[in-house]
C-alpha cells in the first residue's frame, strides 16, 4: 500500500498529530472496540479452545487438530468443496466477465434495465433464494418440470442427488451473486480511459482484439478479486448444503462442507475443541486469501 494521505507535509503532520491523534481516538473508539470484541477476541478464544483436551479441561496440545484431520468426514468435505469450486468458479468467471463485457459500452437504453434485472436476485439472497430454488428443483411443482422430467427426474431426491450438488450450488450462487459482481467488473471496465480504447481503434483493433488485448488485461485485478473472494466463499459454504440436506431427508451428508462439519462438532457431538480447531483452520484459509486480496490485487490502495 502506498504511503498515507498525499500532500501532507511531514513537518506539519508531526506538529498536529497529537491533536488529531486524540480526535481520532474518540472517533475510532467504538469501531476499534467492536473490532476487538467481535473479531480479535473470538478468534483468540477459538485458538485457545482448540488447544484444550476433549474433556473440556486442561491442555490437550494438538489433539483436537488431530481429531479433526483424522475424522473421515473431513477429507470428504474438502473433496466436496473442490468439486463445487471446479464447477462454480469457471461458471462464475466466464458468466460474470462475459456478461459485463457484453453490457459494457453498449449505448442501448436497455442496459440499465438489464443490469437491474441481473442485480435483483441479490435482494432475495440467503433463504429467500433457497426457497426459490427449492421451488425450481422439486419436480412436483416446478415451473421447469418439462425440463426436469426430460432429464429423468421426478422427485427432489433425484434432482438433488449428491452427484448433482456442485452444479446445483453453482447455479444457486450464480443466480444470487452474479449481478453484484457484474456491477463490480462493469465498474472496472468504466475505469479504462477512453483515450486508450480510441487509440486501439485507430490502430485498427477489432472489437474482439479490443476486448482481449486492452480490456481484459486492464480489469485483471477485478477478475483476480472475483476469483479469490469466490474461493473464500466456497470454503465457507453452509446454508445451501445444510437446508437442502434437511429438505431431501437423508440423501445428502449433513457434513457435506467443512463448516457443516464444524457445526456438527459444536452442536451434535459437543466436541468444542474440535469445532474450534476446524474453525481456526478455516479462518487461516480465509486469512491467507484475504491478505493476498489486500496486498496483491492493488484494488484497495490508500489513495
Amino acid at each position: 500500500m502506498p504511503a498515507g494521505p498525499t500532500k501532507r507535509p511531514r513537518r506539519k503532520a508531526a506538529v498536529i498529530s497529537g491533536r488529531q491523534g486524540r480526535g481520532g481516538l474518540v472517533l475510532l473508539a467504538p469501531y476499534v472496540l467492536l473490532l476487538l470484541v467481535v473479531g480479535i477476541v473470538p478468534a483468540g478464544y477459538a485458538i485457545y479452545q482448540s488447544f484444550l483436551a476433549r474433556s473440556g479441561s486442561g491442555f490437550g496440545g494438538i489433539s483436537a487438530y488431530h481429531d479433526v484431520v483424522t475424522e473421515f468426514q473431513f477429507v470428504g468435505s474438502l473433496e466436496n468443496i473442490g468439486l463445487v469450486m471446479a464447477v462454480w468458479l469457471p461458471f462464475m468467471i466466464i458468466g460474470v466477465v462475459g456478461l459485463a463485457l457484453l453490457l459494457h459500452g453498449r449505448r442501448s437504453r436497455l442496459v440499465g434495465g438489464l443490469r437491474f434485472i441481473y442485480y435483483l436476485p441479490g435482494a432475495l439472497a440467503g433463504m429467500g433464494n433457497f426457497v426459490l430454488w427449492l421451488f425450481l428443483l422439486d419436480p412436483v411443482d416446478s415451473p421447469i418440470r418439462p425440463l426436469l422430467s426430460w432429464l429423468g427426474y421426478t422427485t427432489l431426491d433425484q434432482t438433488a442427488e449428491p452427484a448433482h450438488l456442485p452444479v446445483i450450488f453453482a447455479l444457486m450462487l450464480f443466480f444470487q451473486g452474479a449481478g453484484t459482481w457484474i456491477l463490480i467488473i462493469y465498474g472496472g471496465l468504466n475505469g479504462i480511459s477512453d483515450e486508450v480504447q480510441e487509440a486501439a481503434i485507430v490502430d485498427g483493433a477489432t472489437g474482439w482484439q479490443l476486448t482481449r488485448r486492452i480490456k481484459l488485461p486492464l480489469i485483471r485485478p477485478w477478475i483476480a478479486y472475483l476469483i479469490l473472494l469466490n474461493i473464500a466463499y466456497a470454503t465457507q459454504l453452509f446454508l445451501e448444503p445444510q437446508v437442502l440436506g434437511l429438505a431431501t431427508e437423508g440423501t445428502i451428508s449433513p457434513q457435506y462442507t467443512p463448516n457443516q462439519l464444524s457445526y456438527t462438532f459444536a452442536f451434535q457431538i459437543f466436541d468444542v475443541p474440535a469445532a474450534a480447531a476446524l474453525s481456526v483452520m478455516l479462518l487461516l484459509v480465509s486469512l491467507v486469501i484475504g491478505v493476498i486480496i489486500t496486498t496483491r490485487t492493488g484494488l484497495f490502495s490508500d489513495r
Binding site: L35, Y45, A46, Q236, Y263, L283, L287
Partner: peptide, 22 residues
C-alpha cells in the same frame, strides 16, 4: 486500515463458531 480491508474481504461466516464460543 489494513485490518479493515482484511476483515472486509473475509466471509462473515468464518467467525460464527468462535463468536458462539465467546
Amino acid at each position: 486500515l489494513f485490518l479493515t480491508i482484511l476483515t472486509m474481504v473475509m466471509p462473515n461466516t468464518v467467525l460464527v463458531i468462535p463468536l458462539f464460543l465467546e
